[in-house]
Design a protein around this nucleic acid. Sequence first.
DNA 1: TTGACTTATATGTCTAGACATATAATCGTG
DNA 2: CACGATTATATGTCTAGACATATAAGTCAA
Lengths: 242, 242
Amino acid sequence: MSLATNAADQPTLYKRIRADIEKRILTGEWPPGHRIPFEHELVARYGCSRMTVNKALSELAQADLIERRRRAGSFVRRPQHLSAVLKIADIRAEITALGRGYGYELIGRKLRAATAADRERLGVKKAGKVVAITCRHSADKVPFAVEDRLIDLSSVPDAATADFSREPPGSWLLHHVPWTEAEHTISAIVADDRTAEALDIAVGAPCLVIDRYTWRSARTITAVRLLYPGDSHRLVARFKGG
Amino acid sequence: MSLATNAADQPTLYKRIRADIEKRILTGEWPPGHRIPFEHELVARYGCSRMTVNKALSELAQADLIERRRRAGSFVRRPQHLSAVLKIADIRAEITALGRGYGYELIGRKLRAATAADRERLGVKKAGKVVAITCRHSADKVPFAVEDRLIDLSSVPDAATADFSREPPGSWLLHHVPWTEAEHTISAIVADDRTAEALDIAVGAPCLVIDRYTWRSARTITAVRLLYPGDSHRLVARFKGG
DNA sequence: TTGACTTATATGTCTAGACATATAATCGTG
DNA sequence: CACGATTATATGTCTAGACATATAAGTCAA
């Protein structure tokens, strides 16, 4: 005989409040800069305690949809710089997710004392050992990307003995080393002889370049350059915002 | 004579709890999958009420750093697909932020009934009017990007009368139309005659291409293609993750 | 008009409870 | 042993208060 305690409302109250406000913001009814009702007004409107509306508003603030100012109130934030969540998965996962057959080929692997160029690329000052890896990823036997990677062995000693002949270094690192920060730089180049051969495209064809640097608490882990055939591969970023 | 009520701790308690846990996750001390202490344990450790630790844990969950499961506990999430926040600001803001002089030039503007190609590009089915705009952005008098844009007038009627000869359409839209969702596609091409001339680069030089589609609640607003000289311009994405 | 001081107020944080609910673990039974 | 019913438990939500604190707004004197 026990019925739902809250008659016919699926979501919890604070979620309903949050969704109500979010909707008004996204539909433009409350434009950027608009002052949202005060907490005590929402308390009156929804007949709940202040902690409940506070939770709803706090989450909206955490999501950067509104800005809260003491004594002044809460305001709809203006569409911040267009920011997109660019999902760049591990290449193997990316190809597998596309339902295509993943292929991997280790082209070269060298363990050496860091040269001046290596140190500059990794952004470290003192000397140390590094592993340099070149490899190729393919999808359904067609070259998908070539990878040129440098791993700092003082940050990741295990990489010296890891077997990269079958497991791609990106996947290996992802599962062995936690990262805290990274940076991508995206640019375009035209294929030189070596790149053209590796990707099986014409010399002078466009290539998309991703340079990725990964750190763990200010300590460099790896620097990698990925080259994709530019006219075929596409990076897609989807985002939401106010 | 009034001292701080809480002796020598700047941040509030729940923020300290949150920061403590975040640190352990980011340093790898608590790896992905690790169960973090139960709320009642944290309550005992910090000597506070459950609502306080609950607030800390809820925020970590909202930030996708941990996952909370009823009866089971809270767990460190595994590094989701590498996801980067790619900040692609309004071009004018981007150039200004670099401390360079922004220049803008409207190359062409046409108001027309949507052609089949327009409709396909915007992803709409029924006919309607569109504005097609071509323009060029420059930094310190040097071509920075050329823009080729289509605006759906059924979504943004004001765009028909807006003056795009001085204000770039991107900035105008950003300030007049709230967006809810967008998608970027990044690729590389080599410059053809027209592009080479517009960007003042050689024919066959690499170009970075960004195609951006913007919607407002499933309604297409605009489709834009931006072409950047590929060897000079770089998109930088920074991100954090577990 | 300007600057310094005071006050009012909205948000920020916190408590000590309460009941709801999903689900892992246990217990019985066929 | 397999499977369904029961129980224990950690999180989820909520309340009715409390005091802290930043700051917009008002007050008043120079």
